[in-house]
Computed example of a mutant assay.
Amino acid sequence: MFRKFFLVKPAAPGKVYGAPGAGNSVFISVMTAVVLIALWFLITRVGLIKPIFLPSPGAVYDKFIQAMTEGVANSTLAQHTAASLSRVMGAFFLALVTAVPVGILMGVNRIARGLFDPIIEFYRPLPPLAYLPLVIIWFGIGEFPKVFLIYLAIFAPMAIAARAGVKSVSMEQIHAAYAMGATSTQIIWHVILKAAMPEIFTGMRIGIGVGWTTLVAAEMIAASRGLGFMVLNAAQYLASDTVIMGIIVIGFFAFIFDLLVRYLEKILIPWKGKA
Score class of each variant (00 low, 15 high):
155 F>I: 04
155 F>P: 05
148 F>I: 00
185 T>R: 15
217 A>E: 06
142 G>Y: 02
133 P>Q: 00
159 A>P: 01
138 W>I: 10
163 R>W: 13
172 E>K: 11
140 G>E: 02
213 T>I: 14
168 S>R: 07
186 Q>S: 11
198 P>A: 05
202 T>I: 09
190 H>R: 15
145 P>W: 00
148 F>D: 02
161 A>K: 01
183 T>K: 09
193 L>W: 04
157 P>D: 08
206 I>N: 11
126 L>D: 02
166 V>D: 10
125 P>L: 06
219 E>T: 03
182 A>S: 14
145 P>Q: 01
148 F>M: 04
208 I>T: 06
135 V>R: 00
207 G>Q: 13
138 W>D: 09
141 I>Y: 11
222 A>R: 12
211 G>T: 01
222 A>T: 06
169 V>Q: 11
180 M>R: 15
195 A>E: 12
139 F>K: 08
178 Y>P: 06
215 L>W: 08
215 L>F: 06
139 F>E: 05
135 V>E: 07
130 A>F: 03
182 A>M: 10
194 K>R: 14
135 V>M: 09
198 P>R: 05
216 V>I: 13
139 F>V: 01
209 G>W: 08
149 L>I: 01
158 M>N: 07
143 E>N: 12
188 I>E: 07
211 G>H: 02
168 S>H: 06
142 G>W: 00
163 R>M: 14
218 A>W: 00
159 A>D: 08
127 P>M: 04
205 R>Q: 03
134 L>H: 04
126 L>H: 03
143 E>G: 07
206 I>E: 10
128 P>D: 12
135 V>A: 07
203 G>T: 08
127 P>G: 05
176 A>T: 12
184 S>Y: 14
196 A>R: 10
156 A>W: 07
224 S>H: 15
204 M>Q: 08
133 P>H: 00
184 S>R: 15
130 A>G: 03
178 Y>W: 13
192 I>H: 14
152 L>N: 10
211 G>Q: 01
208 I>P: 03
181 G>I: 08
165 G>H: 03
177 A>D: 05
146 K>M: 01
147 V>E: 10
147 V>H: 10
185 T>N: 15
128 P>F: 06
144 F>S: 07
143 E>Y: 13
220 M>L: 14
174 I>T: 09
128 P>R: 07
168 S>M: 10
155 F>S: 05
153 A>Y: 06
213 T>K: 15
128 P>L: 10
131 Y>G: 06
214 T>E: 09
196 A>L: 10
125 P>Y: 05
129 L>R: 05
135 V>S: 07
198 P>K: 04
130 A>N: 03
196 A>G: 09
146 K>G: 00
214 T>Y: 12
137 I>Y: 12
165 G>D: 05
214 T>A: 15
144 F>V: 11
176 A>P: 11
222 A>C: 02
125 P>D: 04
205 R>P: 01
189 W>H: 14
213 T>L: 13
212 W>V: 08
148 F>N: 03
221 I>G: 01
196 A>F: 03
133 P>L: 00
156 A>S: 11
214 T>P: 09
207 G>W: 10
211 G>N: 04
156 A>Y: 04
196 A>H: 08
221 I>H: 04
180 M>N: 14
185 T>C: 15
179 A>P: 08
171 M>C: 11
